[in-house]
Simulated scan of single mutants.
Amino acid sequence: MCEAAEQDLYAVLGASPSDTVQQLRHRYQRLALQYHPDRLGGQCSSEAESGVKKFLEVDAAWRILSDQNTRRQYDLQRRAQQLQQDWPVDSTVCLEDMTWNQDECAYTYDCRCGGGFSVTEEEVDKETRSTQQNGEEEESEDGQQRGVVVCCDTCSLSVYVTWSLQDSNVK
Protein backbone atom coordinates (compact mmCIF):
# COMPACT_ATOMS: atom_id res chain seq x y z
CA MET A 1 0.00 0.00 0.00
CA CYS A 2 3.01 2.33 0.22
CA GLU A 3 3.20 2.82 -3.54
CA ALA A 4 -0.52 3.55 -3.69
CA ALA A 5 -0.21 6.19 -0.97
CA GLU A 6 1.93 8.28 -3.33
CA GLN A 7 -0.99 8.81 -5.71
CA ASP A 8 -4.55 9.79 -4.90
CA LEU A 9 -6.56 6.60 -5.27
CA TYR A 10 -9.83 8.52 -5.34
CA ALA A 11 -8.55 10.56 -8.29
CA VAL A 12 -7.56 7.34 -10.09
CA LEU A 13 -11.20 6.24 -9.90
CA GLY A 14 -12.54 9.74 -10.58
CA ALA A 15 -14.21 9.66 -7.19
CA SER A 16 -14.16 11.57 -3.93
CA PRO A 17 -13.54 10.39 -0.35
CA SER A 18 -17.23 10.91 0.46
CA ASP A 19 -18.37 8.39 -2.19
CA THR A 20 -20.00 5.19 -0.98
CA VAL A 21 -18.63 1.76 -1.81
CA GLN A 22 -21.43 1.36 -4.37
CA GLN A 23 -20.43 4.63 -6.08
CA LEU A 24 -16.79 3.53 -6.08
CA ARG A 25 -17.77 0.14 -7.52
CA HIS A 26 -19.71 1.84 -10.33
CA ARG A 27 -16.72 4.06 -11.20
CA TYR A 28 -14.33 1.10 -11.01
CA GLN A 29 -16.48 -1.05 -13.29
CA ARG A 30 -16.81 1.73 -15.86
CA LEU A 31 -13.02 2.33 -15.92
CA ALA A 32 -12.18 -1.38 -15.85
CA LEU A 33 -14.34 -1.93 -18.92
CA GLN A 34 -12.79 1.06 -20.67
CA TYR A 35 -9.15 0.06 -20.03
CA HIS A 36 -9.35 -3.74 -19.85
CA PRO A 37 -6.54 -5.33 -21.90
CA ASP A 38 -9.01 -7.52 -23.82
CA ARG A 39 -10.77 -4.41 -25.16
CA LEU A 40 -7.50 -2.77 -26.20
CA GLY A 41 -6.17 -5.69 -28.24
CA GLY A 42 -6.60 -4.02 -31.64
CA GLN A 43 -4.82 -0.77 -30.76
CA CYS A 44 -1.16 0.03 -31.38
CA SER A 45 1.26 -1.18 -28.76
CA SER A 46 1.88 2.20 -27.06
CA GLU A 47 -1.85 2.85 -26.62
CA ALA A 48 -2.42 -0.70 -25.40
CA GLU A 49 0.52 -0.38 -23.02
CA SER A 50 -0.79 2.85 -21.49
CA GLY A 51 -4.27 1.29 -21.29
CA VAL A 52 -2.92 -1.72 -19.40
CA LYS A 53 -1.03 0.58 -17.05
CA LYS A 54 -4.21 2.59 -16.39
CA PHE A 55 -6.18 -0.63 -15.86
CA LEU A 56 -3.64 -1.81 -13.27
CA GLU A 57 -3.82 1.57 -11.45
CA VAL A 58 -7.62 1.42 -11.40
CA ASP A 59 -7.57 -2.18 -10.17
CA ALA A 60 -5.05 -1.40 -7.41
CA ALA A 61 -7.11 1.61 -6.28
CA TRP A 62 -10.28 -0.50 -6.19
CA ARG A 63 -8.61 -3.26 -4.17
CA ILE A 64 -7.68 -0.76 -1.46
CA LEU A 65 -10.84 1.37 -1.48
CA SER A 66 -13.32 -1.51 -1.72
CA ASP A 67 -12.32 -3.01 1.63
CA GLN A 68 -13.50 -1.07 4.69
CA ASN A 69 -10.32 -1.66 6.71
CA THR A 70 -7.80 -0.86 3.98
CA ARG A 71 -9.85 2.19 2.94
CA ARG A 72 -9.88 3.49 6.52
CA GLN A 73 -6.12 2.95 6.77
CA TYR A 74 -5.56 4.70 3.42
CA ASP A 75 -7.78 7.62 4.46
CA LEU A 76 -5.83 8.03 7.72
CA GLN A 77 -2.49 8.01 5.86
CA ARG A 78 -3.86 10.45 3.30
CA ARG A 79 -5.11 12.81 6.02
CA ALA A 80 -1.79 12.66 7.90
CA GLN A 81 0.05 13.52 4.69
CA GLN A 82 -2.31 16.44 4.02
CA LEU A 83 -1.77 17.80 7.52
CA GLN A 84 1.99 17.71 7.04
CA GLN A 85 1.74 19.54 3.71
CA ASP A 86 -0.79 22.23 4.63
CA TRP A 87 1.69 25.02 5.30
CA PRO A 88 1.12 28.55 4.06
CA VAL A 89 4.38 28.44 2.07
CA ASP A 90 5.17 31.91 0.78
CA SER A 91 8.11 31.03 -1.45
CA THR A 92 11.06 28.76 -2.08
CA VAL A 93 14.49 29.88 -0.91
CA CYS A 94 17.81 28.27 -1.84
CA LEU A 95 20.06 27.54 1.12
CA GLU A 96 22.94 29.34 -0.60
CA ASP A 97 20.78 32.52 -0.70
CA MET A 98 20.46 32.48 3.08
CA THR A 99 22.95 34.17 5.42
CA TRP A 100 25.19 32.00 7.57
CA ASN A 101 25.05 33.03 11.25
CA GLN A 102 28.22 31.71 12.91
CA ASP A 103 27.01 32.40 16.47
CA GLU A 104 23.82 30.35 16.08
CA CYS A 105 25.27 27.82 13.59
CA ALA A 106 22.23 28.46 11.45
CA TYR A 107 21.22 29.87 8.09
CA THR A 108 18.89 32.87 8.29
CA TYR A 109 16.63 34.72 5.87
CA ASP A 110 14.58 37.88 6.45
CA CYS A 111 10.80 37.69 6.26
CA ARG A 112 8.79 40.51 4.75
CA CYS A 113 7.12 41.08 8.14
CA GLY A 114 10.47 41.98 9.72
CA GLY A 115 10.92 38.61 11.39
CA GLY A 116 13.12 35.84 10.09
CA PHE A 117 13.43 32.26 8.97
CA SER A 118 16.13 30.09 10.44
CA VAL A 119 17.37 26.59 9.66
CA THR A 120 20.23 25.06 11.64
CA GLU A 121 23.18 23.26 10.17
CA GLU A 122 22.06 20.23 12.20
CA GLU A 123 18.62 20.25 10.49
CA VAL A 124 20.23 20.40 7.04
CA ASP A 125 22.63 17.56 7.88
CA LYS A 126 19.87 15.45 9.43
CA GLU A 127 17.56 15.87 6.41
CA THR A 128 20.43 15.17 4.00
CA ARG A 129 21.43 11.99 5.88
CA SER A 130 17.80 10.87 6.06
CA THR A 131 17.41 11.34 2.31
CA GLN A 132 20.59 9.46 1.49
CA GLN A 133 19.75 6.59 3.87
CA ASN A 134 16.20 6.18 2.55
CA GLY A 135 17.30 6.47 -1.06
CA GLU A 136 14.81 9.30 -1.59
CA GLU A 137 16.23 11.30 -4.44
CA GLU A 138 14.22 14.19 -5.78
CA GLU A 139 15.68 14.94 -9.17
CA SER A 140 15.72 18.42 -10.56
CA GLU A 141 17.59 20.15 -13.37
CA ASP A 142 20.50 20.78 -11.02
CA GLY A 143 20.62 17.21 -9.70
CA GLN A 144 19.50 15.85 -6.36
CA GLN A 145 17.56 18.39 -4.25
CA ARG A 146 16.24 18.33 -0.72
CA GLY A 147 14.40 20.82 1.42
CA VAL A 148 12.45 21.64 4.56
CA VAL A 149 9.59 23.98 5.41
CA VAL A 150 10.72 26.72 7.81
CA CYS A 151 8.30 28.98 9.71
CA CYS A 152 8.86 32.68 10.36
CA ASP A 153 9.68 33.45 13.98
CA THR A 154 7.18 36.36 13.97
CA CYS A 155 4.31 35.78 11.54
CA SER A 156 2.49 32.77 10.06
CA LEU A 157 4.43 32.63 6.77
CA SER A 158 6.69 29.75 5.85
CA VAL A 159 9.30 29.22 3.18
CA TYR A 160 10.52 26.03 1.59
CA VAL A 161 14.31 25.97 1.91
CA THR A 162 16.03 23.79 -0.69
CA TRP A 163 19.60 22.69 -1.22
CA SER A 164 21.54 20.33 -3.44
CA LEU A 165 22.52 17.07 -1.79
CA GLN A 166 26.04 17.40 -3.22
CA ASP A 167 26.40 20.92 -1.78
CA SER A 168 24.80 20.52 1.64
CA ASN A 169 27.80 22.17 3.33
CA VAL A 170 27.22 25.55 1.71
CA LYS A 171 28.38 27.99 4.49
Rank of each mutant, 00 (worst) to 15 (best):
L65Q: 03
Q23S: 05
M1Y: 09
A11C: 00
M1R: 11
L83G: 01
A48P: 01
D167V: 02
Y107R: 09
C44A: 10
E137N: 11
V119Q: 06
E127G: 02
G115Q: 08
Q23H: 01
E121R: 11
P88H: 08
T120R: 08
W87A: 12
F117Y: 15
S45T: 10
V150L: 08
Q132R: 15
L13E: 01
D125I: 14
S50D: 06
P37Y: 05
Q102K: 13
E121Y: 13
L33R: 15
S16A: 10
A106D: 05
S50P: 01
S66D: 03
G116I: 07
F55I: 04
C151Q: 09
E49L: 15
G135W: 13
S156T: 15
D90L: 15
R39W: 07
Q166G: 02
Q102N: 10
V124R: 00
G116N: 12
E121S: 09
T99D: 04
D167F: 09
D19R: 00
G42Q: 11
A48E: 05
D75C: 07
Q34F: 08
N134Y: 06
Q166Y: 05
R71Q: 03
C152Y: 11
G14K: 01
E57Q: 14
Q145H: 08
S50Q: 13
T131I: 07
Q145A: 11
T154E: 12
Q29I: 04
Q73G: 04
G135L: 14
G42A: 14
D142R: 08
G135E: 15
Q133P: 01
Q43N: 05
Y74R: 03
E3G: 13
T154Q: 11
T92V: 15
E104N: 12
R27W: 01
V52M: 06
N101Y: 04
E104C: 08
A5H: 06
V159T: 05
Q68F: 05
E6P: 00
T120Q: 06
Q145G: 02
